[in-house]
Design a protein around this nucleic acid. Sequence first.
DNA 1: ATAGATGCAAATGTTTTGCAGGAAA
DNA 2: TTTCCTGCAAAACATTTGCATCTAT
Lengths: 148, 148
Amino acid sequence: MEKAEAHEKLERYLARHGLKQTRQRAAILDAFLASTGHITSEQLYEIVRGKQPDVGAATVYRTLRLLCEAGLANSHQFGEGVTLYEVQGRHHDHLICNDCGAIIEFRNELVEAEQEKITAQHGFQLTNHQHILFGTCTRKDCERRPRD
Amino acid sequence: MEKAEAHEKLERYLARHGLKQTRQRAAILDAFLASTGHITSEQLYEIVRGKQPDVGAATVYRTLRLLCEAGLANSHQFGEGVTLYEVQGRHHDHLICNDCGAIIEFRNELVEAEQEKITAQHGFQLTNHQHILFGTCTRKDCERRPRD
DNA sequence: ATAGATGCAAATGTTTTGCAGGAAA
DNA sequence: TTTCCTGCAAAACATTTGCATCTAT
């Protein structure tokens, strides 16, 4: 997603919902778009803070949720008690190593298509999904925990 | 998974790791096996407490993590800040309604097979996965939030 | 002028941990 | 009799919320 395009999309969402454009929201969106892969609220807060020291952590949390509602971000819970966000439109699924924690991204059209069928069968309309495969990787330098 | 089989499996795991069998672990496993669908630590704690009022919440948290490591349980984070557990071997994936929160279970062999291929392609050995489809259901009584 | 947004600090909710006493090996 | 477990309370942690103040509209 283009930077300008994203800002326009947010603008439209704000207008449609009677919300306001603010310096903070623009700055947070900018920093978010500049991120690659996954980012937490905390991490994004640190980055934004570098440019605008007066921004509060709560605003970053609030804005990231707003971005999800506006369709600009997606959130994931990989099971460590933290919420990870990624830019919408850079869709892919995840393959995670149980031992070293490496996260590999993949995209499989066959599965994507099947998901549509499954949801339709249950009378649902698919909006988004989360598909995570956990396994053990075979990299030599994998920081593996002793296996059982 | 049979009750006896599960207890044996736990026993083996404990022995192999130099851990001990305790009254609490047995009681928690029993209560867990008797559950259907998904359960939180908190909920399981309430149940166990009914039979053994002296069991602490921390022990339930600790034991549930142990059961996951022993391959008797699986954990999920559906995004509400709580960890849900389910009995391993009753495997299925999930379809969740964004509006009413309904959780529907499904199982699709085509997807299951494809997962093996994907992991193999990346030099991984698949151990488990999490596959959640989010959408809007069409039940008339769906407690829907006002749609945009 | 008014509805919303912000920053701060306090509150929340779940899960983890330190520790002293208790139980299994 | 040593090692591991337990319950309790306190701590940790990410996230949310109340509120007085500011800002976009």
